[in-house]
């Protein structure tokens, strides 16, 4: 193993995307055609830990460097955007957290790999082009809230760290690889990540009532017990049913206890929500909209911004358990 000093080891293990880490792997002579099964397994471990948001201990710098480089490849080979996004988010957050408590010298070294900057006092200045192309999408980072002079944006350390992590995120997202450029066992290994795939296309099984968020459970019960559920509630519920892909005949029946029930009209409205008439399915309103309708019954299980994400995550969790 190539020997590195303590400081280099620190940089490599905390920032496995760094120039130093890449240089280390090169010196080690890591060769795609000779990667061991153990190394691939470690990369899978890394992705799994990232996607399940599990806290893990820092591995040796050698393991961190190799697992990161291989994980990035496996995620790209899997070709699933959701998995890629979650992995990129996790790695970007990890880098951000380490950077926030990093020594200035190492921070600056990492920063220089991502941006051309000038430093004065504690303030970093970068070109507005780099800034805008990488700024996170939030009001705090809106150019109105930044110091912009003569084409330079002036940033303190924490905003600089946010920009670095955003660029790292984009780097991972933009990595596109061809399966044919890699040995078969890479492609095989990437398939182990399929279990984390985006759920969209897989909501096809039976509807799971127990995975309903509290607001939808409430409307569901009201429809069975009260004859006059308000329009807003029916509308929101219809969009929800459409998105969890409940069979439309089954969905019609759910409204049958309403006083003014007409099968024909109900079906007509549902078909609109399902997009069978227009080809465009209605999106489920977000939690904040549902709240503004006065239909929110939030409890501690609600950790998402939309009832549909709640439902998907509940199902996904179950799948991971099994």
């Amino acid at each position: 193993m190539v020997s590195v000093d303590k400081r280099e080891g620190h940089t490599i293990s905390h920032y496995p995307f760094s120039r130093l880490a890449k240089a280390y792997l090169e010196k080690e002579g890591v060769d795609i055609s000779k990667v061991s099964d153990d190394d691939l397994q470690l990369a899978i471990e890394r992705v799994k830990a990232t996607l399940t948001k599990k806290n893990r201990e820092l591995w040796s710098f050698d393991a961190e460097a190799k697992s990161y480089a291989l994980a990035k490849i496996l995620v790209a080979l899997l070709g699933d955007f959701y998995v890629k996004k979650q992995f990129a988010k996790g790695e970007a957050n990890r880098a951000f957290n380490y950077l926030m408590s990093e020594k200035e010298e190492i921070f600056d070294e990492i920063a220089s790999q991502f941006f051309d900057y000038e430093k004065k006092g504690g303030s970093y200045s970068i070109s507005f082009i780099d800034y805008l192309n990488n700024a996170p999408n939030s009001e705090n980072f809106h150019l109105i809230n930044q110091e912009l002079r003569k084409g330079k944006v002036y940033l303190h350390k924490s905003n600089m760290a946010a920009l670095i992590s955003e660029k790292l995120y984009n780097n991972i997202i933009n990595t596109q690889l061809k399966k044919s450029d890699f040995p078969k066992k890479f492609v095989e290994a990437s398939k182990q990540l399929q279990v984390f795939r985006r759920f969209e296309e897989e909501i096809s099984g039976p509807v799971e009532l127990s995975a309903f968020p509290p607001c939808m459970r409430k409307i569901y019960l009201d429809l069975q017990t009260k004859p006059n559920v308000p329009h807003n509630a029916r509308f929101v519920f219809a969009t929800f049913l459409a998105n969890i892909k409940m069979d439309i005949d089954q969905a019609v029946k759910l409204f049958s206890k309403q006083e003014n029930f007409s099968e024909q009209k109900t079906r007509y409205h549902l078909e609109h929500a399902y997009g069978t008439r227009t080809g465009r399915k209605y999106a489920v309103p977000s939690c904040s909209k549902i709240q503004s309708y006065g239909l929110c019954y939030k409890n501690e299980s609600c950790k998402w911004a939309s009832p549909i994400t709640y439902y998907k995550n509940m199902l996904r969790r179950r799948r991971w358990k099994t």
Binding site: I129, L132, N133, A135, N137, E139, H142, L143, I144, N145, L148
Partner: peptide, 24 residues
């Protein structure tokens, strides 16, 4: 080299909405 989101931000900087300004 500006991407599309960055161009949108430039327009929003040149022509901000009153609500945004009041908020921030």
């Amino acid at each position: 080299k500006l991407n599309s989101k960055a161009r949108r931000d430039i327009v929003r900087y040149i022509k901000p909405s009153p609500e945004l300004i009041a908020r921030v």
